[in-house]
Simulated assay, not measured.
Amino acid sequence: MSHIETFYEVMRRQGITRRSFMKYCSLTAAALGLSPAYVPQIANAMENKPRTPVLWLHGLECTCCSESFIRSAHPLVKDVVLSMLSLDYDDTLMAAAGHQAEAALEDTIQKYKGEYILAVEGNPPLNEDGMFCIIGGKPFVDQLKHAAKHAKAIIAWGSCASWGCVQAARPNPTQATPIHKVITDKPIIKVPGCPPIAEVMTGVITYM
């Protein structure tokens, strides 16, 4: 398994000096109401705890979950994405597209087997071998199964992923189905809502 960056490594890579880092740890302790004696413990945790790689997939949905997520205020989504976790793939938020984006997805799956979190927004259609939702030239249901195989856990964002929502309503011509009906061998954390509350989303993913 490849090395996963720690919070400290990310801060240093962004140009933060060791002195500024220790000041940050001191301010963190003060903000939490802790004595200065806790500063070394906070610094040690920041230096050693790895950031969590996250893959964020999109199936049948309206992207309202992402729209809610980016509006989080506590914590700010920029802090979640840039400092708290490693969002390695999200075709809505990432700069890369096409072959570069799909290469980033596969690279994360191979490098961090068993270590990454899979976040899923929307659901897979099963009718006609999944041909109603194509991502990167392949049915979304195939992408979902492939990405879930080596995931540590899965987050089902919103009502679509959690229980099917509008596209799974009768007569459901695409046979859209919630995530847990397709992935049955992984822990799945459901965060329903259309969309879910922004701070609930950032809170869940930061906690994990």
Rank of each mutant, 00 (worst) to 15 (best):
T6Y: 11
R12Q: 12
K23S: 04
Y24K: 09
A29N: 06
A29Y: 09
A30V: 12
A31T: 12
L32M: 14
G33V: 10
A37L: 08
V39N: 09
V39S: 05
P40F: 08
A43S: 12
M46K: 08
E47L: 13
K49H: 05
P50R: 10
V54S: 02
W56S: 08
C62V: 08
C64A: 15
C65R: 09
S66E: 12
L76N: 06
V77I: 08
S86T: 09
A96M: 05
A96T: 12
A96V: 14
G98M: 07
H99C: 00
T108A: 03
I109M: 15
Y112N: 07
Y112W: 10
N123G: 13
G130T: 05
M131V: 13
F132S: 13
I134S: 11
I135C: 15
Q143V: 15
Q143T: 15
L144T: 10
H146K: 15
A148C: 07
H150I: 03
A153T: 15
I154G: 05
A161E: 06
S162E: 12
P171Q: 02
P171W: 00
T174D: 06
T174S: 14
Q175C: 03
D185P: 01
D185H: 07
I189H: 11
I189Y: 11
C194T: 01
A198S: 13
V200P: 00
M201W: 10
M201H: 03
